[in-house]
Amino acid sequence: MNNKIFSSISALSLLLSSAAIAGNTVTVSGSTSVTGLMEVLAETYQLQQNDYIEVQGTGSGAGIRAAKEGTSMIGMSSRPVATDELGKDVQQFVMALDGIAVAVNNQNPIKNLSIEQVKAIYTGDINNWSQVGGDDQAIVAVTREVGSGTRGAFEDIMGLTRKINDITVTAISARAQVQSGNGSIKTLVANNSAAIGFISLGSVDESLAALQIEGVDATKANIQTGDYGIARPFVLMAANSPEPEAQQFIDYIMSSEGQQVIADHGYIEVK
């Protein structure tokens, strides 16, 4: 009997100590462009304390709703967020800046396009690479899904919207292929010599080529000087009085250590 009591006490003690070690869970969801960077920040943060950071890439629109409705402690958006999208009980702040790279297959001879040429490609007015000095090959324009923060920022910056009955709608051609994340666009462009897509600058790697826009390279330095104009903020949203564990993670992101992690991974720190 005593052995059973001792075993029960030991099991309970182990359970309680494990719960203490595990700490709290901080839920983060939203923009797929921010997700990769947030996962890195979460990993470095978790090395220092016991809280667990749960990150989900659900899209900017979903991240805004999650922050507003309280279904996530922290929401992520890769486009500016209007005050009326959140309500009075939610705060927002910029954690980093990111460029949007216009990328093509490594085999594509085109190295530079003007803003007007990129815009015409996405409206469908330019539909063959020969029209911009490339090979005689039909262009495969690739875009993000409606509601994507990357797409929203790209449309705003490039003037790819139009008015119908006083309602702002996309001007991107219905013939453009739609992909649901940076990774999907990278894969498609990397494997299709005729493709062009737009992705987070921090996601660019050797599998595809970022074009110059108006003769300016898509680099961190050129975004900081304003010479490369296709850039957008990475926005975080949380309750005005978040849970302590969420506030501690936010404080880490905005600290000099967190901002250095952001800079080390190709994004632009804000502090």
Rank of each mutant, 00 (worst) to 15 (best):
151 R>W: 15
12 L>Q: 05
257 E>S: 11
207 S>C: 08
101 A>C: 04
36 G>T: 15
90 V>G: 02
39 E>M: 09
248 Q>R: 15
179 Q>F: 14
47 L>S: 12
156 D>C: 01
206 E>W: 02
82 A>H: 02
174 A>L: 08
240 N>Q: 13
148 S>P: 08
52 Y>H: 13
254 M>E: 14
99 G>F: 07
102 V>G: 00
25 T>C: 09
186 K>E: 13
162 R>N: 12
215 G>T: 14
111 K>E: 11
5 I>M: 09
153 A>K: 01
206 E>F: 05
42 A>R: 11
109 P>K: 13
4 K>I: 11
259 Q>W: 03
72 S>Y: 11
161 T>F: 03
269 E>H: 05
142 V>L: 09
78 S>N: 08
7 S>T: 13
250 I>M: 08
97 L>P: 07
45 Y>H: 03
94 V>N: 14
97 L>G: 10
164 I>H: 10
120 A>L: 00
149 G>Q: 03
47 L>M: 12
171 A>E: 14
260 Q>L: 02
91 Q>Y: 05
137 Q>W: 00
142 V>W: 01
49 Q>N: 15
264 D>V: 00
241 S>V: 10
237 M>N: 09
222 N>H: 01
48 Q>T: 14
10 S>K: 05
22 A>S: 13
118 V>H: 11
9 I>S: 03
224 Q>D: 05
40 V>C: 02
179 Q>S: 12
164 I>L: 11
171 A>R: 10
86 L>Q: 06
20 A>D: 06
22 A>M: 10
159 G>I: 02
131 Q>Y: 00
233 P>E: 09
189 V>G: 09
199 I>K: 08
78 S>H: 10
215 G>S: 08
170 T>C: 01
188 L>M: 13
218 A>V: 08
160 L>A: 06
233 P>A: 07
243 E>K: 12
173 S>V: 04
214 E>A: 06
241 S>A: 12
252 Y>W: 05
122 Y>L: 08
195 A>N: 07
182 N>E: 07
87 G>R: 09
271 K>R: 14
189 V>P: 05
225 T>F: 12
